[in-house]
Design a protein around this nucleic acid. Structure first.
Lengths: 356, 356
DNA sequence: TCGAGTGTTGTAAACGTTTACAGTGAATGC
DNA sequence: GCATTCACTGTAAACGTTTACAACACTCGA
């Protein structure tokens, strides 16, 4: 089956290509012409070539989502939300992995080739080079993450400060007073932000004692190793705030292997509220950074900018919400009392204080 | 910043557009011309327009991955593998969700618009309409899943028969004799295949007793509900084979809530070997259907077909592998003896018997 | 000195659309 | 009956590339 062009449709219908195009696109044309052309298109199985249309119309109906590590559940959640918005608006979504071959900078430079009408970028780290490339690109870009204010770009960010404060406040309310933050690598953007957020949160509670340690990675194994060490120090802390759910799960396993009960001997919390947090026993209390909402908002910002290229840059901060499960309840409570988690409606403290 | 075309580069360099194009694409040209053109391109910040090139060259350098429910971990794993292969070959990957707006059939029809050079399709269910659309489309398609032999298409499939036999054989070896298969909806393709696989597997063991029940969905909650019922029947079975990991996890939770020990009172296995299987306690024995490999192979088949459109259709069946964790060990063994799973090198029975 | 050969360049067509513009015929107003 | 409008249609240009083909200049051998 070879390509059938609008020219063939036109001759088959006995009209000019212009009339054929108009008839097919609902432009002005006589009823008779429309009928003839539509029948001819039908008979020949005509479908308009997307590339030719793109060239002529100056838009591709494609948007890109560029992220370092697709496969990371948080990014997948964002992607799913983005895909929903994007496809509902008639755009296709192309995936640009910045991890494999090309860096964020290359990806942004490549935007100049015009293969998409816009991009949502979730950069690993923000370099001057990247900022320069972003400033120069003619294609709209929405950035997921933190950017210097000088960059006049649409941005969607999580609120790590509030997120960590939700966790620390919760632990204090549950009677904990000696908290250790188990971070991932702090030279990454999330690592740095969560560490700072934790520091700010504990500063608001002068009565408690707190410190930070670093795991080698944002993984279960690294969290296990770090927690194993933390839990063997004396005096033993009564709470671990893990920088993400994987580290939190590793910490729970370390505690269990040491014969400690969670939350009896030690309270443990995570960040990201992944599916894992609900599956493990006890359920892992976790703060949800709103990945789904961030993805959705980013997509909406991008669509809005495409419609109106010169609107002022928006920065949206998505409010985190605390999801309390068994791993952080007060010692006094009976952990066995917590019902099976798949039926549990986890308590959700949606925080209204977060910046809008 | 507006678009700079090759024409502008040409005048700036004082040559014709043809020479400019040749100089930039490494075609035949004098050293002097190449230098002039490259400098002009540099100065003007020229980048070739992808759409115009696509139109002229008749290829888009894009491949599509169409799947019902992106967000499902199994599909994400495939997607990651596909992305790796595809981007290494210089293609972009576009994501076509068949769930949201359009059906598989629409997606395949849309291929005629030529916005990609090929597609990897993972259809929800295979209808005659879909087969007809596939037969008609001019664009190469590789199908992930089962297809009638009459469809002369490249196909990559999992081996459910062998997968279920690995599980049943394993349970029998571990001394189980009364096995219940907790399926998801059996009107789905995986549901039907796994049910048939289970039936075939138990047929090879006349000594054991076996039956099937259906959960409402492939979810933890549905698995919990179904298992709760199964486990309260008398005589109680000594093993549950769940149709996927989520149902398996729900089953473990149901057993725990009923005061049963796993694997002491009941052995439980899953399918897919998701991350969850390693996180839950006890670890869930699961058979890995090779999602990563299926994705990779599908991408390779697609690339090969693009290079050689008339090669005969290939069907590749990927061998499953059994990953044994604590949930299915023999009663005699001490479940507490199983080491913390993140350190566990799970035993992996890669099955050589599976078709290649 | 001329012809053939070689290496480079320019002209123009082509990819498949959309659309500005001019042109056609019929209907209408005077 | 003629001019004006109107609704529609066709011609051709344009989007930004690549490339077939012809043209050119130059070298070399006879």
């Amino acid at each position: 089956m070879v390509r059938v062009t609008i020219t063939q449709v036109a001759v088959h219908a006995g009209v000019s290509v212009a009339s054929a195009s108009r008839a097919l696109n609902g432009q002005i044309a006589s009823a008779k012409t429309i009928a003839k052309v539509q029948q001819a298109a039908e008979e020949l199985g005509y479908v308009a070539d997307a590339t030719a249309q793109s060239l002529k119309l100056g838009r591709t109906n494609q948007l890109a989502y560029a992220v370092a590590d697709i496969g990371n559940p948080v990014y997948v959640e964002m992607m799913t939300a983005i895909e929903r918005v994007v496809s509902a608006s008639g755009y296709r979504l192309v995936l640009s992995s910045t991890g494999t071959s090309s860096s964020s900078v290359d990806v942004v430079r490549d935007l100049g080739r015009g293969y998409v009408d816009g991009m949502i970028l979730s950069p690993l780290r923000v370099t001057d080079e990247l900022l320069a490339a972003l400033a120069k690109t003619p294609t709209p870009v929405v950035v997921l993450g933190r950017l210097p204010d000088s960059a006049k770009l649409d941005t969607v960010r999580a609120d790590s400060i509030t997120a960590m404060r939700l966790l620390v406040d919760h632990l204090v309310e549950e009677g904990r007073g000696d908290v250790v933050f188990v971070n991932g690598p702090s030279d990454t953007t999330p690592g740095a932000l969560r560490r700072d957020g934790f520091a700010a949160a504990v500063a608001a509670h002068p009565a408690i004692s707190a410190r930070s340690v670093g795991a080698d990675d944002f993984t279960i194994a690294a969290g296990y190793a770090a927690a194993l060490q933390v839990l063997q120090e004396r005096p033993r802390p009564d709470a671990i705030v893990a920088a993400n759910d994987l580290i939190g799960i590793g910490s729970i396993q370390a505690a269990t292997d040491l014969g400690l009960t969670v939350p009896g001997d030690i309270a443990i919390t995570g960040v990201d509220n992944t599916e894992l947090a609900g599956v493990i026993r006890p359920g892992l209390t976790s703060v949800d950074l709103g990945a789904e909402e961030r993805g959705r908002v980013a997509a909406q910002l991008l669509l809005a900018r495409i419609v109106e290229p010169n609107r002022p840059a928006h920065t949206v901060t998505v409010a985190p919400s605390l999801v309390v499960r068994g791993s952080s309840l007060a010692r006094s409570q009976d952990p066995a009392a917590s019902p099976p988690s798949h039926r549990t409606e986890a308590i959700d403290f949606n925080d209204e204080r977060a910046a809008r």
